[in-house]
Structure formats: structure tokens, C-alpha cells
Amino acid sequence: MKGIILAGGSGTRLSPSTDGINKHLLAVYDKPMIYYPISILMLGGIKDIMIISTKDDQERFKALLGDGSALGISLTYEHQIEPNGIPEALIIGEKFIGKDDVTLILGDNIFYGQGFTNLFRRAIKNHEHATIFGYRVKDPKRFGVVEFDQNQKVLSLEEKPEEPKSDFAVTGLYIYDHHAAKIARKLTFSARGELEITDVNREYLKKGQLDVQLLGRGFAWMDAGTHESLFEASEFIKNIQDRQGFKLACLEEIAFYLRYISKEALYKKGKSMEKNDYGKYLMEIANRKHNQQYWESIDRDPVLGLVENE
């Protein structure tokens, strides 16, 4: 399984904050926004990840994350010349995907919830062709809406419908087989002047190959693409971290507990930031006695909260 993060776009909804920087490099409380989708892919067991950004921002992402080796993963970079829609990420990443399956996640989407890691890993393990994730919303008219049967087989997809057939919105997380790039290449631009990810999903739906995984009560899905949602996401992250005492989307911590990096490497990274809480947190984890046994004994997911045993 490969992973692609789409972190391009013009960022106009967050202007003027994004006039000089990619929005995915802005902080969501105490870490860059891009950390959150990377953490999701890492927790899903995906180690080979492509980040697609604008050409001007590509070097900034490289300066922040390098080639991923410090986290025990592989990061590669490509750029999007114009923001032509989500499916373009599949086209840009076609050679990267090759014959593998791929998980595509939008760079401004944040997921949180008890058991999310297991749910996501099961979806990766069990999916055959295409899987989308549905999240209950109060006003489905504002979203792409998925209708499904009792077996979570998708019946229909609608974009911002006047009379929604369900109250589940389609989130910015998608799992596809290797045919997705070919499907994306055949799309035509919509009235909005973009390639639409809904059209990719509809192609799978026509073949009876589209499943939906529902995120029920206890899950949170946030799109940090506006000033209001960015503030709300930061506030949410701060409250969770303050109350529960561990950090969300802490990539070094995840890498350590997945045994991608050593305790010494974790401590060294923390030491380089020892004057702030993030660095102190990493050093504290590295210094904790019987680390792995402690973590497993309380069944904690390193980024998303409590999680049942796999």
C-alpha cells in the first residue's frame, strides 16, 4: 500500500495567512498541519508516502520532513502546477503507485477517535477496489453525501444535494486499487473547472466496487481549510492533549512505538527541541522505563486515543 497526501492548492480561503506559505505548513496548535495526515498513514502501516504540493512549497516540505528516514519511512515529493482537483493527485502519482493499492488523504483533513487506527487498518486489509469514509454531519447539503445499504455497500453519491439521501458526508480519505489513476486520467473537467473525486468514486460505484466505512459516534473529522476551522481544530487538539496528557500526530512518538526508530533517536530529536514542550515530551517518552509494555498495557493509540487490541 502506497500513501499520497495532497497538500497543494492556492490556499485562498486562508489568505492572507497563506500568501507567503503553504497552508499545510501552518500550525494546528503545536505542530504543522501536514503532521496530521502523515500520522494517519503511518498508523495505517503505510511507510511509502508521496507529498504533492505546489512547486514553490516543495522545498519547504523537504526542509521540514526530509526523506522520511528520521521517522523510519520514505517520503517523496511531487508538485501540482495548478490546483486542478483531487483526482490529479492520482495522475501525478501514477508511476509512484505502480501496481500497488493507494490511500489518498487530503492534507488539511484531521481525524480523531477511539479505535480509528484499527478501523483504518481493517479497511486497508479488507478493501478490494475502492473504500471511502463516511462521517455523520448536521448539514449534509454542504457536502458530498453517500447513501448506502445495511452492508455498507454504496448506493449513490451526490454532491451538495438539496434533498440528501443520508446525513453521511464523504471525508477526504480514500483507499483505491491501482486502477484509480487510469480512471482519473479519463475524467473531464466539471462546471467548477476541476477534476472531481466524486467522479472517480462513481466509476467504482458503476462497477459495484465501492464500499463505505462509517465513522460513528466518538469520531471527529475536521477540515482545517478556513480560518474558523483552523482555529477550532487547534482548540480541539489543545483540549485533548491537555486533558489526556499525550500528543496527537506526534510523528516521532508514532515511529518509536511502531519500532521504526530507536529510543536513542527519539531522545536525540527531543533534545534538539528541549526548550519547548514538544521536545520535552519526546525526551520524557524516551526516558520512560518499560516503554512498550506500559503502552500496550493501557491499549493506547499513539496519536488518536484509546484503541482496542488488534
Rank of each mutant, 00 (worst) to 15 (best):
P32I: 07
L205C: 04
I110Q: 07
G66P: 08
N109A: 14
I81H: 10
K165V: 02
I91W: 00
L195N: 01
I51W: 03
I52P: 01
I92S: 05
D57E: 15
P140K: 05
N276V: 02
G208R: 08
Y77A: 07
G134S: 08
T171R: 03
L258T: 12
D101P: 03
N84V: 14
Q244P: 00
F148Q: 07
K125E: 14
K206N: 11
L119P: 01
G193N: 08
E253P: 00
E194M: 08
K138F: 06
Y29I: 01
K247M: 15
L282K: 05
C250G: 02
L64P: 04
K160E: 11
D149R: 08
E94L: 05
Y176M: 08
S10A: 12
Y174Q: 06
N84A: 13
S69W: 04
A184S: 12
S17V: 07
L187T: 09
S74I: 10
N109H: 12
K153H: 14
L25P: 00
M283K: 04
V303F: 10
V146L: 07
E274L: 10
Y176P: 04
E147M: 13
Q80I: 09
L75H: 03
I5P: 01
G216K: 09
Y112I: 12
Q209F: 08
P87V: 01
Y294D: 06
Q292F: 15
E203I: 07
G107I: 10
Q150M: 07
K271I: 08
T103R: 01
M222A: 02
R259T: 13
K138E: 15
R243F: 05
N151L: 14
K207R: 15
E235M: 11
G144D: 13
I132W: 05
H129L: 08
Q292R: 13
I240D: 00
R142A: 09
D56F: 10
S17R: 13
N151Q: 13
S74E: 15
Y174I: 00
G216S: 10
R136E: 15
E296T: 15
A191E: 12
I237Y: 02
A130D: 09
E235A: 15
F111S: 04
K186T: 12
R202I: 02
K138T: 14
P87R: 02
H227M: 06
G93P: 03
Q241W: 07
F256V: 09
A224R: 01
I254Y: 02
K31E: 03
V28W: 00
G8T: 02
G98L: 09
A220Y: 06
I92V: 13
D101C: 11
V307Y: 04
I237H: 04
Y174R: 11
R243K: 14
L266M: 11
N309T: 13
R259K: 15
D149L: 06
K55D: 12
A169T: 11
D211A: 08
I40K: 10
F168D: 01
H129S: 13
R185C: 09
G45S: 03
E159I: 09
G11N: 00
P161S: 08
V28R: 02
K263A: 14
E78K: 14
V146Q: 01
Y35Q: 04
Y267P: 09
S53Q: 02
R121M: 15
K263D: 11
E232H: 13
E59S: 13
G134H: 05
V200F: 07
S190F: 06
D139E: 14
